[in-house]
């Protein structure tokens, strides 16, 4: 990632650390970044220089109002106001990595077609920790293309137990 993204992630981590709620803020920012990455219209709006920064910040404030902590909303407004709204996803991912590293953890990105229950999250985190030998910070992404099952990515390691991949193998075998 670029130095600029790392710089914003470092600043956000410092704010989250100062707020004393690194995990929650990191999770919320990760969710917001994911939303920006998957929504082309929102991403183009946030990166459109013809739209005044105040208007772009107002859009995000309206979207996040009551759904995130004030600190999270403030960090998002800062990034959008600086004209880096399109990079929000990268910045949030970098922040998640830094936050996990600061807690001696690894970020495990889990893609699922359905939401995971708290019990499933706990058991999955434990299983991953046992397998990887380190604590993990789960970042669950809702992805309908997975169809069923899970796809977990930790660093360069991908553990694929999705129905989509099984169907792909079936297609290749046929």
């Amino acid at each position: 990632m670029s130095d600029r993204v790392q710089g914003y992630a470092d600043a956000m981590l410092a704010v989250a650390h100062a707020e004393g709620d690194i995990d929650a803020i990191s999770n919320e920012l990760f969710a917001v970044g994911r939303a920006v990455d998957t929504n082309d219209e929102l991403r183009s709006t946030l990166s459109d220089a013809r739209i005044p920064a105040e208007r772009r910040m107002q859009i995000m404030d309206d979207l996040l109002d009551g759904r995130t902590r004030p600190a999270t909303k403030g960090l998002v407004s800062m990034v959008v106001g600086a004209g880096r709204g399109a990079d929000l996803g990268k910045i949030a991912t970098a922040l998640a990595d830094k936050a996990a590293t600061s807690q001696s953890k690894q970020v495990a990105t889990v893609r699922s077609a359905v939401a995971l229950s708290d019990d499933q999250r706990t058991r999955l985190a434990s299983a991953l920790a046992a397998k990887l030998g380190t604590e993990v910070d789960l970042k669950v992404i809702h992805d309908e293309s997975v169809v069923g099952g899970l796809i977990t990515t930790v660093g360069d390691t991908v553990i694929d137990g999705s129905v989509r991949t099984r169907l792909s193998r079936l297609r290749e075998s046929l």
């Binding site: 699922s112 359905v114 995971l116 499933q120 999955l124 299983a127 099952g149 137990g161 129905v163």
Partner: peptide
């Protein structure tokens, strides 16, 4: 499916 994935993991 998710439970099976976690069990195998």
């Amino acid at each position: 499916l998710i439970d099976d994935y976690i069990s195998k993991l």
